[in-house]
Write a protein that binds this DNA or RNA. Structure first.
Lengths: 235, 235
DNA sequence: TTCTACTCACGAACACCGTTCGCGTCAAGT
DNA sequence: ACTTGACGCGAACGGTGTTCGTGAGTAGAA
């Protein structure tokens, strides 16, 4: 047995340096997910995750190539919670809308994760691909040909990501109420400063545009788009 | 006239320190726009703009509150190039689609500027408001009521921003071809590694999804959505 | 003309970020 | 018991937005 470390020299590390490997990609992702769910995507930095793990940022790079890869792992984890229904041609329009709602719910649960879906040109992680395939199945069951289904799926996923990102911003602290109300006042002032008739519609419509109507706006967009798809099929 | 600076003491600054004020918000925005058009939004940093102006980053804060405000000024400048057609009820669907195309064109001309439109909850700059009003006018001319027009306009602007951002990425250097092709290979490998029938649709549909089809995908989305709107009116 | 007052310019610093290099420590193999 | 090699990670690099304090220069007053 080697001599024990001299008592005056503090033990190698405040925390126990566990036997072999204490870190793992899984643990890193799990920790990052917790920060993500609690504080939003902007709080997830390599340093922050490392800190939570009581280590330095450099340690993470043994298990994760870079921040981008970590981001994609987080997105994939978030999407893993979305169900995959069996296509039912009788009610395909409802199924499509329901799937979009599920995807949005999953993303909003991890505020800002939609931003990641954004920065990555074509998501190639398992659950992203799975969601793509599911949507294609639902659309084809509705009678769209392959190209139509592909284009429709692309449009839907684009809108889904966009909506989820925006919704995250509204519900999360991305912009605080203080600046928001100041902004509203600023807008009202500006519009009133112009000839009253410059923005007749916007002035009236302002009331429809707030956090409370976001669900209704989603439903409206889905309804219109899916109706347009259905018309293509019938033709 | 005061005595000229002694010749041995080098002139106060390498560059001439012009009489009163050499900087202005206008000049800053103009400079930033040039960088933006040439190198994309990520190249536009306070330091970079200041460097182009041969000064330090701190100097900009006299004319611009912060980076966010500069970003909004850039977005507004980009949107200023979008025309505002007179509503014509006979061909409102075509006008709506055309307006979206114009907005996208304007944004793609300044690569990545769409990201800014994104980070700002409700854009309150003059040209943003103007575009909102124009879209509302076109939709109302088509027969939609105020709430329908508002929701439709919201959906369209969301999709417009999303598409413009994605298009910027494709056409611009955001992700280089090297990583892209490696990514495609990686995806193909992964999909083939699963039971052949796991992604039957995605496997076939891959061919439709590339930079060349982006225009067609835009037209498809517009067509479906606007058709859905038209159906609401007729009913 | 001289002195003061005030505005604008901006160098330096702060607190973050992602990422890399290389050293020290530990555990297992010989 | 000694060597070897992998792992952990402190420190540093170059980037970001932003702030503070200082100094330079002009304009106005005395």
């Amino acid at each position: 047995m080697t001599a024990p470390p001299p008592p005056w020299r503090r033990t190698p590390s405040p925390r126990r340096r566990a036997a072999k490997q204490m870190l793992s990609q899984e643990l890193i992702v799990k920790t990052a997910l917790e920060i993500l769910a609690a504080e939003g995507i902007d709080a997830v930095s390599m340093r922050r995750v490392a800190q939570q793990l009581e280590t330095g940022p450099a340690s993470l790079y043994a298990y994760v190539a870079n921040k981008e890869e970590l981001d994609e792992l987080l997105l994939d984890a978030a999407l893993s919670e979305v169900p995959c229904p069996e296509p039912n041609p009788q009610r395909w329009t409802e199924q499509v809308k329901e799937q979009v709602r599920h995807q949005i719910r999953a993303m909003v649960a991890y505020p800002g994760i939609a931003k990641v879906a954004w920065q990555t040109p074509i998501p190639v992680t398992p659950n992203s691909l799975r969601q793509g395939e599911v949507m294609l199945q639902l659309l084809r069951a509705g009678g769209l040909d392959l190209q139509q289904a592909m284009f429709a799926s692309d449009a839907l996923s684009t809108y889904t990501k966009a909506f989820a990102y925006e919704a995250s911003g509204w519900t999360f602290g991305d912009y605080d109420p203080e600046k928001m109300s100041e902004r509203e006042r600023q807008m009202a002032d500006y519009m009133r400063s112009l000839p009253a008739s410059a923005f007749p519609n916007l002035l009236q419509a302002g009331e429809f545009f707030n956090a409370d109507t976001s669900q209704a706006r989603l439903e409206f967009a889905l309804e219109a788009f899916v109706a347009g798809l259905a018309a293509m099929v019938r033709k």
